[in-house]
């Protein structure tokens, strides 16, 4: 008869869940809509939880953030809390499962969930129960804003019943070349313009973002600075070189399954087509507009969220 308890933790740039959803955390705009990484299938494993692929574990490394901007996510903490009993033994109680992000030893994210553990093993077999949770962090004035040692600390405390405590598992990562999180004047919020061949805007968090587009060919002379939305709901602009540039991605807003993210598409109708604004919903760092189908679309200067980082 035996009881096993342990924690496994990562700091990741992206994941692919067992139900086939790929999401990136590295370099995406804050709080993008995410599909339900936990939906569908019953494909869990003791080693991997519900993720079939974990991309770029940053634990123990030094990572330059020079290519990112304030308003971008960096990584997620991903934790498995595991309890196993064998040969007729049992475990009953409530565990308080902590997940913390730290900067130079001080918490800036400190969250927990209560989990009810109630398992008993068959006579010569075993039964195990596992919790998996995640928490992102990004470049923001109260999260990652300076070069320092960052990290996660995860542990379980016994809330009631049998001893469900599991000692802490800590992972460190050194973030360097962290971009300034200084904001511009709030009176500039909402400005959109073409600079060189990029589309610039001041987002709702008062940071200037610059979008690089895919060159679609010449738009003709005298059209520099024009901005429009095509019938496939992509945002376009004409650069200083008179070429038509198309935004690299757009998402038709959907009800996200991720913390603090988007609600359902408001679908205001085609009479609003062409309306464009810097959005004050969920991440507050993206552009939003209404496509010719009357739906709300979002785009931004960060990376597309649904490909491997």
């Amino acid at each position: 008869m035996a009881i096993y308890k342990n924690i496994c933790s990562w700091i990741l740039k992206g994941v692919k869940s067992c139900n086939g959803c790929t999401v990136a955390f590295w370099g995406i705009n804050f709080n993008m809509p995410f599909p339900d990484l936990w939906a569908g299938g019953l494909n869990w494993s003791w080693d991997n939880g519900y993720m079939c692929t974990r991309y770029c574990n940053l634990g123990g490394s030094t990572v330059s953030l020079a290519s990112l901007c304030p308003g971008y996510e960096i990584a997620t903490s991903d934790v498995l809390y595991r309890y196993c009993v064998t040969d007729g033994s049992c475990l009953n109680g409530i565990a308080k499962m902590w997940l913390r992000w730290l900067r130079s030893g001080t918490y800036f994210i400190n969250s927990y969930s209560l989990g009810c553990i109630d398992i008993q093993a068959p006579g010569s077999g075993w039964t195990w129960q596992m919790y998996e949770s995640m928490y992102m962090t990004g470049i923001d004035y109260d999260e990652v804003y300076t070069t320092a040692m960052y990290g996660t600390e995860v542990l379980a405390e016994c809330y009631s019943g049998d001893d469900l405590s599991i000692g802490e598992c800590s992972i460190g990562v050194c973030f360097t070349n962290v971009p300034s999180t200084a904001q511009c004047s709030s009176t500039l919020r909402g400005y959109i313009w073409v600079e060189g061949n990029n589309l610039h805007f001041i987002n709702a968090r008062c940071w200037e973002h610059s979008m690089t587009g895919d060159n679609q060919g010449s738009a003709g002379a005298g059209k520099q600075g024009s901005i429009w939305i095509d019938t496939n709901h992509y945002l376009h602009w004409v650069g200083a070189d008179c070429n038509d540039y198309r935004a690299k991605w757009r998402i038709c807003q959907f009800c996200s399954d991720w913390s603090s993210s988007s609600g359902p598409n408001p679908s205001p109708g085609a009479s609003y087509k062409g309306a464009i604004w810097v959005d004050t919903e969920f991440g507050n760092t993206h552009l939003a507009y209404i496509g010719c189908d009357g739906n709300k679309y979002i785009t931004g200067s960060g990376k597309y969220p649904y490909t491997a980082p």
Partner: peptide, 25 residues
Amino acid sequence: PKQAEELGLKKPSIVGQSVVITKDS
């Protein structure tokens, strides 16, 4: 988002998942 949640269009986000697995031998 608050109104959407009240209408049942947006649920509070998922932060974790638990599974119990057994094996007879």
